[in-house]
Design a protein around this nucleic acid. Structure first.
Lengths: 129, 129
DNA sequence: AAAACGCTTCGGAGATTCTCGAAATGTCGA
DNA sequence: TCGACATTTCGAGAATCTCCGAAGCGTTTT
């Protein structure tokens, strides 16, 4: 029987307790995405998205893969976190923002990266919060 | 297929993302406790404990029962939250503060309420955060 | 080589959270 | 009835979080 500090669990739950981060996780469940793709779906500033991704990675939920000027993030919960995520998905899938995001993501995934990033300079549709 | 807002889920996770609140939940898994009993185990100010309990109740995790001047809180996750809690317990049980709390709670439960509350006036042992 | 591009880091403004002690509320016992 | 008591509410200070735009860093394109 091992004894762990409680902070990692607290940090994980704190990380999960934010709508943008939950939406990112739901998006990545359909496969990896780069920052500008996520940015395009969420309607937040690129720096904000990048910060959320960094925190999700720190919490042990994502892995990153650099490819030229793009950075792709993939859902990859580390050992011992899968059970928590598995029970989370059904709750997440029922929510309105996630349904909407997944639909938007299907379109985004079909579009070449060069085009998406360029497109999202002006756009700022932004689902509130 | 129903569509829910995402905020309730976010609020729940935010509520869970705090060490004192996780420790309270772990305590109550062994049965209801009143504020001064929890206060005695956690070593936080009574008002702080009361506020955490209120938040846990608002999140749909606890129910309260008044008995004279005491208020007993019981673990009672509302429908649709049990699965999340079930997957949380094993993670929580492995942590050092929870193990320590449960041991302290066993002693506290054997002591009459009048005595516990009186005892904890001066005491302020306080596991740091 | 220079410009454009995607992403991250930094600085800061505004909002939220956390904790406590003081004061308020309701209950019990002398 | 009055004082003691358990709990809650309130107010305030400190700490943390969230978001953005500006600036910085590598990579690619021109």
């Amino acid at each position: 029987m091992s004894t762990q500090p409680i902070e990692p669990l607290v940090d994980l739950l704190k990380t999960l307790g934010h709508p943008a981060r939950l939406r990112i996780l739901a998006l990545l469940r359909d496969g990896e995405m780069c920052v500008c793709q996520i940015n395009s779906v969420l309607g937040l500033a690129p720096s904000t998205v990048s910060e959320h991704l960094t925190e999700l990675r720190r919490a042990g939920l994502l892995s990153e893969r650099k490819d030229g000027r793009w950075v792709h993030y993939e859902l990859k919960p580390k050992a011992g976190l899968q059970d928590l995520m598995e029970v989370l998905w059904p709750h997440l899938d029922e929510t309105q923002p996630v349904k909407k995001d997944l639909k938007a993501a299907r379109a985004v995934r079909k579009t070449p990266l060069e085009m998406i990033c360029a497109m999202d300079k002006p756009r700022r549709t932004a689902q509130k919060h």
